[in-house]
Amino acid sequence: MIVADKNLELVTLTERQQKARRSRSIAIGVALAALVIIFYIATIVRFGHHAAGLMPTSLM
């Protein structure tokens, strides 16, 4: 049985594992950025649509 020890965190990643982790980190970063952009755009599109409907005709 492994006893919890600070040393357990000192795992040395192989070069392959480091490259794989970097690749996953970049993909997660890109996916999160894409998600933010998607929700931002969708909010603008939807609110823009509603705002146009609420706008007084003199302003249109």
């Binding site: 357990l8 000192l10 040395t12 192989t14 794989a20 982790r21 993909a27």
Partner: peptide
């Protein structure tokens, strides 16, 4: 060398992933 090397981690049920973003895309 760290005490907790890969072998020890695998024995304890851990496995350092070597999966790339491409593998997840596949």
């Amino acid at each position: 060398m760290a005490l907790a090397d890969d072998r020890l981690m695998e024995d304890a049920g851990f496995r350092m992933s070597e999966a790339t973003a491409g593998d997840f895309f596949a």
